[in-house]
Design a protein around this nucleic acid. Structure first.
Lengths: 207, 207
DNA sequence: TTCTTATTTGAACACCGCTAAGATAGCGCG
DNA sequence: CGCGCTATCTTAGCGGTGTTCAAATAAGAA
């Protein structure tokens, strides 16, 4: 009756159905898009009955939260790569912005789930903003090392928020058809992203 | 059988059901929120059977498109008011940005419908970007009158896009709980919005 | 009038989120 | 070992959704 999983610590019937469901949801998200991500379809993809997920998530939204969490972790990997590829703080923060928008451009459906979850709760995931190692903190640090007044707490906050908002806005708009001629004129999407971000706060200081 | 409409040009059974449906949808959007905006609920609100809308819209998405169109027109009214309230170009473009985000903050569900429609088609409404009197054109004009090089077509475009992206991002994020303390410290949401926008491209030049 | 066409309805299909009741399987404890 | 307990999963079902289609209806044309 078991399919093909390593028999490591399978405490109950399925093994780790919770994780299997999140993985099935991510698979479905890439394969069919965000609109096809119904709870029943996820259960089907995981080979389980439509009611099974309710023993691991109280809600559909709670399953989506788990998917979004996965997404934020993947984004953090992209962040680390961007940071490690550069040494100067201004370079780093600029590449952070580019990596952010590129991630959204490469995983549009996942990014949509991530932000829809946050918006529905009017609340960003705590580890994204508040953690010591969070992307938000990294932006603030580089702001200071790029010359911002570290004692101006409010100014620092506003500048970091401006960067984040511009990145999010660009992430959602970069796929609009109207921008395609400009992307071609600049020789690709990444050049386009850099060009836009260069007009925003600390991103500009990196140039 | 008729309710209480002026008997002006009622060519068919209901009169102008298409318009009545869009108005019912807007009413429902303000009253119940975006998640309650089902086609059946709209038909119910308009006092008509669930299948009736299909003779005026091929799809649910086409009805939402009409609602979004209504929204863009309302936003344009806010734009005109913001423009007429100031004379200097830098003031005007700054107030344009503030008006944009304030509109989204005051009609969050309508704004959501507007942008979801655009994103699903990866296409902004033509009149928003391409028209001579469009908000996008107005931003570009003020960019020039604020000192941008009018012969640098690409630079102009990039700056205008940066403004738009920042406004959209801020519009979607301003309701996040994490920003509330900062809003209070600044004495209100509008001051917060101005503070953030001041870090973005041409918006900053107005200060 | 009758004919034609646009409009609206009612019934139906497939799918959705979610719930409740029963079947099943792993675990602790005697 | 065997018994019961509890977590897990299934089956069945509720109300709601988008959508389609044949029938009914009303407006305008001939």
């Amino acid at each position: 009756m078991r399919e093909s999983e390593a028999p490591e610590s399978r405490p109950y019937h399925h093994g780790d159905l919770r994780r299997a469901l999140v993985e099935a949801a991510c698979r479905l998200l890439e394969k069919e898009g965000a609109q096809a991500l119904s709870l029943r379809a996820v259960a089907r993809e995981a080979g389980v009955s439509p009611a099974a997920p309710y023993h691991h998530f109280k809600d559909k939204s709670e399953l989506l939260d788990a998917v979004a969490h996965e997404g934020w972790e993947k984004l953090d990997l992209a962040f680390q790569a961007a940071r490690d590829a550069h040494t100067s703080p201004p370079d780093r923060v600029r590449e952070l912005g580019v990596a952010y928008v590129c991630f959204a451009s490469q995983h549009p459906d996942l990014y949509r789930v991530m932000y829809d979850c946050s918006r529905d709760k009017a609340d960003m995931p705590a580890h994204v903003l508040e953690n010591e190692e969070s992307a938000y903190r990294r932006v603030r640090e580089v702001l200071v090392s790029a010359g911002a007044d570290p004692s101006d707490e409010i100014g620092l906050e506003l500048a970091a928020i401006a960067c984040w908002c511009a990145a999010h806005g660009l992430a959602e708009m970069t796929s609009f058809k109207q921008f395609e001629p400009l992307k071609e004129a600049l020789g690709g999407e990444e050049a386009f992203l850099r060009g836009v971000l260069a007009h925003v706060g600390v991103f500009a200081k990196g140039l």
